[in-house]
Computed example of a mutant assay.
Amino acid sequence: MKLLASGRDSDVFDHGDGLVLRRYRDGRSAEAEAATIRAVAALGYPVPAVHSAAGPDIVMERVDGTTLVEAMAGGLQPEQVGAVLAGLHDRLHALDWPGAEPGESILHLDLHPLNVIVRGTDPVVIDWSNARPGHAGLDVAMTALILAQVVVTDGMLASVGVGDDGLRAAVRAVLETFAGRVGTPYSDHLANAEALRRHDPNQSAEELRALSRAVGLAREVARVDRPAARAAGRPAAPPDGRA
């Protein structure tokens, strides 16, 4: 099979007939993740269609398009990207998740611009390996923290195969728009998000060294006046994140 892409913990191969196979390199099972993707798809959330799952492999619909990072490098405004991310969070956390405790939603916990593919004008969310029920504020805090990490960490974009090309500065604007538009406050959940990142084996030494600064930045932008930020950051005709 032809290798299409490699992430920090998995590889994606062309499986033919409009399908891809994603395989975890550590051999962990992908079957629970496949079940989550099918469940959110059944509730109308934009995800790839799952065809099969066995052991570390998921066979899914191939989503042709560009990630939000690639779209931003191609001219999509950072404010549009932030608005799309906010809209995707709000839609996800509004789903009536079966079996969730009161006050809980289904969480993605890795919803950042590299995990959103724009197909035409529609965003599709990939990589549900960390998904679980919980408080929506933790999910929002995780996205804010990951964006802040990109801003403060040298080489983080390069570590996932993306050239910087000035994108780190643009990500600051993504973060500010996201924090101003997302419907769920997240400051009280940053400590838990930080703990999850510190225990993530895929974090590099440089990312861990800069993590406290990233938490500080995510907390700083969370203090932005939300109505003012929302008015200032409203994009013109973004991809349909329904923000």
Rank of each mutant, 00 (worst) to 15 (best):
G166Y: 01
N130K: 13
G7D: 07
G120S: 08
G99H: 10
S204Y: 05
L68F: 02
R172Q: 14
G137W: 02
E70T: 14
S105K: 00
A41C: 00
R213D: 15
A49K: 10
A173L: 14
D225N: 12
R213L: 10
V182Y: 07
Y24T: 08
A170V: 01
G241K: 05
Q77R: 15
Q149V: 09
E206N: 15
A39N: 02
L92K: 05
E101S: 13
D96M: 10
G161V: 01
N202M: 10
V50L: 04
A42C: 06
V47P: 02
L21F: 09
P235R: 07
L21G: 10
I146G: 07
D225M: 05
V118S: 08
A229G: 13
G16Y: 00
L211I: 09
A39M: 10
V171F: 03
R28A: 10
E33L: 09
V215M: 04
T143C: 12
A229M: 14
E104Y: 13
W97A: 08
I106Y: 00
L107S: 01
A231P: 09
G155I: 11
P238Y: 06
P123A: 08
G16E: 04
L196T: 11
S10F: 10
H89M: 02
G75H: 06
D139V: 03
T143G: 10
V151Y: 03
A170N: 12
P235I: 08
A229H: 07
V69G: 02
D122F: 07
L95T: 11
L147I: 04
G65C: 10
V40S: 10
M1E: 15
R181A: 13
H89I: 00
A236S: 09
L114P: 01
A141Y: 02
T153Y: 00
L211E: 06
T153H: 02
V152T: 12
V63M: 07
G16N: 01
A41S: 12
R219F: 12
L157P: 05
A237E: 12
A205I: 11
L76H: 02
L109M: 14
G99T: 12
G163Q: 07
A73S: 12
L3C: 05
R219H: 13
V182H: 09
V59W: 01
A148S: 08
A193W: 07
A173E: 13
V59F: 01
L43S: 09
V50P: 01
A32E: 10
H108I: 04
V162T: 04
D127V: 11
A236W: 03
V63P: 02
G55P: 03
L85K: 06
H89V: 03
A231E: 15
A158F: 07
P133G: 05
L43A: 15
E206S: 15
N130S: 13
S52T: 12
T177Y: 02
D200W: 00
P48L: 06
L114R: 14
A35M: 03
I126W: 00
P201F: 03
G155E: 11
H112G: 01
H112V: 11
D11W: 10
R230I: 04
T67G: 05
V182W: 04
D154M: 07
V12N: 01
A173F: 00
N202V: 07
A195C: 04
G18M: 00
E70R: 14
R62A: 15
L208M: 08
R219W: 12
G216W: 09
D26Q: 11
P48D: 01
V124L: 11
L114K: 13
A158C: 06
D17E: 15
S29L: 10
G55K: 05
T143E: 08
V47Q: 03
L4K: 13
A53R: 00
E79T: 14
